[in-house]
Design a protein around this nucleic acid. Sequence first.
DNA 1: GTCTATATGTTGATAGAC
DNA 2: GTCTATCAACATATAGAC
Lengths: 204, 204
Amino acid sequence: MEKVRSRTSYHHGDLPAALIDATFALIEENGVHGFSVAEAARRTGVSISAPYRHFADREELLAACAIAACEELQRRFGEALAQRQSPADQLSAVAAAYVRFAAERRPMFESLYGAGLDKSRHPQLADAGAAVLMPVAEVARKLAPGGGGEAAGILVVALTSLAQGYATMLLEGSFGEPPAAVDLACERVAAATAALLRGRSLLF
Amino acid sequence: MEKVRSRTSYHHGDLPAALIDATFALIEENGVHGFSVAEAARRTGVSISAPYRHFADREELLAACAIAACEELQRRFGEALAQRQSPADQLSAVAAAYVRFAAERRPMFESLYGAGLDKSRHPQLADAGAAVLMPVAEVARKLAPGGGGEAAGILVVALTSLAQGYATMLLEGSFGEPPAAVDLACERVAAATAALLRGRSLLF
DNA sequence: GTCTATATGTTGATAGAC
DNA sequence: GTCTATCAACATATAGAC
């Protein structure tokens, strides 16, 4: 309710955020392929050139979306970690949280893996991505032999791969139709994580 | 060496195949986003309208590429299955074959999961996809409790998810730079498959 | 089966006014 | 910080000639 902005401003207090929202809406409707800067501008009610004051080009807007997705993911991982006690349970919960994130925030998920972003050209995004995995790596270290970093790293990649795969297959329809499919996939990825951890002696 | 085609034909014995090759080349260079029917036609040396004699629209050409990808994948899975004896080894080998396929035939991999194809609108593609997994499901049945179909189905989805995830993370760079990364990811996905199977009592 | 030509639409990005 | 106006480039798809 704070509309104390100057009269010379047009109808947005935060155009960048509005453009990011519009981009997610477009991705939701037609995939990353269906997004364009022009259409995002139209949806937001601004001219076609306005976005370029805030984002250098199309890629930078997509990168901003991916960063927002990282933040949402980090929040969800934090919740998952807080609700469980044992490291194994925590990792299973994180995997399930990732799968649920993919289903409930599909455009965010797609902006992360499907936008073809060159992370080396978007250091802020690389940082945001690393920050998401940091608390997970810390938990993994408790399960790794010797508590060392190397085995923990292998474990983290194994878990992210597993979760990424389940998320993808869920969106492909391998678990049936929503909403039942979401719960099913979350259960299954948690169980698979547990199975993987249980048999993890084979990993190192 | 069979150039017995009529003189009224232009410079292609098989334009559809040539267009599919060109499409893969474009995907390799710039992702699915970088593909267009027009550019594929130019690369192939034919006019912009020629492709439309063979493919109803852009999507149908992409679907044809995905079907070609399924065939290549099926071939590789067949090799992997033939080279191992025990069901568990066979499944590990299939997972590794999928990851290697993603790395060695990246545009094919991308046409499968990244083209946003509505499989229900391309029944031929749906069939090709199902055919790929059929021999894998048969092996899984040997490991499932009671030899029943349900547990085998859960196992197949678990394995495809795992392999899909490792493939994605490999292409994202989580395993380092090629070519060493490819071998590493293949080893790891095989080990993870073994670990998953070993702990699989948790799955059912 | 392939061509030329074309209709029709969209895009990303910039220049300059306010 | 947003506008209007505009550019060149490119897309999909079709019609009709050969």
